[in-house]
């Protein structure tokens, strides 16, 4: 009996010896992203940018591109080149960030709305069909009504690509109601065709 106890003790001690206990190398004196710290008063190791500083490559002088406005008015053209690939990218980003509330069709019947969020307007509402494209960029950037800003989540050019996809959705609906004529769908108003001549987004009316 005594022998057995000793043996069990030896087994346990040996086993513990085989599994290392020290964690010095695992937890080194450095911070992982978002790790907590006692050094700063707010407890964050990730520091916010100091006010009014501009990071390299983030001097946003192109007002139209970064605000969607010129002289305080929403612009009605795309300030970046929009190709078919951009509309496809816009579709992907739309489905990630917008469809939870706006629905994949953009009709305002997203899943989160069925959970109780205030229903957003349909993109097929004449007010939005006729709105200049800068309006959509502005809403994504600054929020609107119940909608929060997506500026920290969706990069600038992706917001323009999403706007191009919204135009494609509107154009496809217009095309469908016009009997889906081949050219009828390809004439969305208010800036689906970019100024620098790469206006392929109009042709993307059939992209679904």
């Amino acid at each position: 009996m005594y022998r057995r106890k000793v043996m069990a003790g030896v087994v346990l001690a040996g086993a513990l010896g085989l599994t290392a206990c020290r964690q010095d190398m695992h937890n080194q004196p450095r911070y992982k992203p978002f790790a907590a710290t006692s050094f700063f008063g707010d407890g964050r190791s990730a520091r916010p940018a100091i006010e009014d500083t501009v990071a390299r490559g983030q001097l946003h002088l192109d007002q139209a591109r970064y605000t969607g406005k010129e002289n305080g008015k929403d612009i009605s053209y795309f300030p970046i080149q929009i190709t078919r690939a951009d509309v496809a990218r816009g579709q992907e980003r739309f489905n990630i960030f917008c469809s939870p509330c706006h629905g994949r069709l953009g009709d305002g019947h997203g899943m989160i709305v069925s959970r109780g969020l205030r229903q957003p307007p349909s993109y097929y509402d004449p007010r939005l069909v006729n709105a200049p494209v800068g309006h959509f960029f502005d809403v994504m950037t600054n929020g609107y009504g119940a909608m929060y800003s997506y500026a920290s989540r969706v990069p600038v050019d992706d917001r323009w690509r999403i706007a191009s996809y919204i135009r494609a959705l509107q154009a496809s609906a217009a095309g469908a109601s016009a009997g889906a004529s081949q050219n009828g769908a390809a004439s969305p108003q208010n800036g689906a065709v970019s100024q620098n001549g790469a206006g392929q987004s109009g042709r993307a009316g059939g992209l679904q």
Partner: peptide, 19 residues
Amino acid sequence: MLLGGTLAVAYITDRGDWT
């Protein structure tokens, strides 16, 4: 048996869900 037992416990301690 001593060695086998030690290795078995070590293995479980090292790989088990608890560790």
